[in-house]
Amino acid sequence: MKMRRIIPIVLVIVGILCVFGAMAVYALERGNNQDRVEWNVTLVGAGGEQKTLSYDEIKAMPSYEGWGGFFSTAGVVSGPFKVKGVPLESLCEQVGGVNPSQAVLVYAVDGYSMVFDYDQISGKFDTYDPQTMKPTPHGELKLILMYREDGKPLSHDDGKPLRIATVGTDKLLIEGHFWVKWINKIEVININEAKASGTITVAS
């Protein structure tokens, strides 16, 4: 008789613990998805100008929204997504701008970096159809520092809080290595004029 009374009580306690556990997991998930981020991006101009913008300051800048997606080197397709962020050109303008004799280096917090030449900053990329994976011409395309994907802030795996993306009017893909995650520094560099003659020299 005693056991008959104890079992339901134990089950009630276990049940309450599980409910609280599940609520805690939910609350943690929800907390992770909040769009409140402590993050700075350092901008460095070709002439040495330097400026640091917080995540909130970047979000307050005029934004660009469009479609963007990519495929990995293993052929895995991500997107196209509805992507929102600030054009890289606008960020470069904060430290003197970028011109055709310059390039932009972007750095991630994990030590990864990528360089974009002026044509790429202006949106010249090879684009691919997500269904056929065939090279496909594109309309307007912009290189941006993205902070929202399909209306939500980025998750850690997607590059939270700021990631490089190409976005435009068409639902197309580019190669994934350009979509650099976890950006914390953007630097405008001069391409060495002496190197720009366009020849190959073979010394023997």
Binding site: S197, I200, T201, V202
Partner: peptide, 20 residues
């Protein structure tokens, strides 16, 4: 044939250089 590299790959700007 020293010119194979340049003829096949073409020019780059800035250039890819080969030194020996």
């Amino acid at each position: 044939n020293d010119s194979i590299f340049q003829n096949v790959m073409g020019s780059f700007s800035p250039p890819i250089t080969v030194s020996e």
